[in-house]
């Protein structure tokens, strides 16, 4: 469900005409076209995941995931304040549109592939992911419990028989 929603949001934004200078790309598309895009202004769309990690002098790292690839975005801390929900087990993170300079191997950051963002916009807010309990698994656990119990009891029975003999 969450993935479908994210994809829908993605399609909507990509379909929006002239929303940014360049058409927004997914992280995977950027990675695939890294030679062509190196040093260019790009627009990346994807889910903000994990944590906002402090770097130095008021700048932070935010990792943005789309199409299975996560890309590091380097941006000023106040720009990252716009992100409220970060993707993890319990959340689908905010879908963000990041524009900035793409660096295939950033000289400033030891060769990390990153985007130095000049703008960040939350295009779809994140949400809480429901993780319902799947009840058929109780059956599986029950089977294991029965297996354990039977084996333990049988071992005890056998020991008593051999000890008695």
């Amino acid at each position: 469900m969450r993935r479908i929603a994210a994809t829908l949001a993605l399609i909507v934004v990509i379909a929006l005409p002239a929303s940014a200078a360049a058409a927004p790309l997914s992280a995977t598309q950027i990675l695939d076209q890294r030679a062509k895009l190196d040093g260019q202004q790009v627009a990346l769309i994807g889910e903000a995941i994990g944590d906002v990690l402090h770097a130095d002098e008021g700048d932070v790292w935010l990792n943005v995931l789309s199409d299975g690839t996560a890309l590091g975005v380097y941006l000023p801390a106040e720009m990252a304040d716009a992100v409220h929900v970060l993707g993890d087990y319990r959340h689908a993170g905010d879908i963000v549109l990041v524009t900035g300079e793409y660096r295939r191997a950033c000289d400033q950051h030891g060769g990390d592939m990153d985007i130095h963002a000049t703008a960040l916009e939350v295009v779809a807010p994140g949400s809480v992911t429901e993780r319902p309990i799947e009840f058929w698994k109780f059956g599986l656990a029950g089977f294991g419990l029965v297996l354990t119990g039977a084996s333990v009891l049988y071992a005890r029975y056998k020991r008593r028989v051999t000890d008695g003999a």
């Binding site: 656990a141 294991g144 419990l145 297996l147």
Partner: peptide, 9 residues
């Protein structure tokens, strides 16, 4: 339960 069960078996 499955691992302990299989192991005990």
């Amino acid at each position: 339960t499955i691992a302990v069960g299989a192991g005990r078996l």
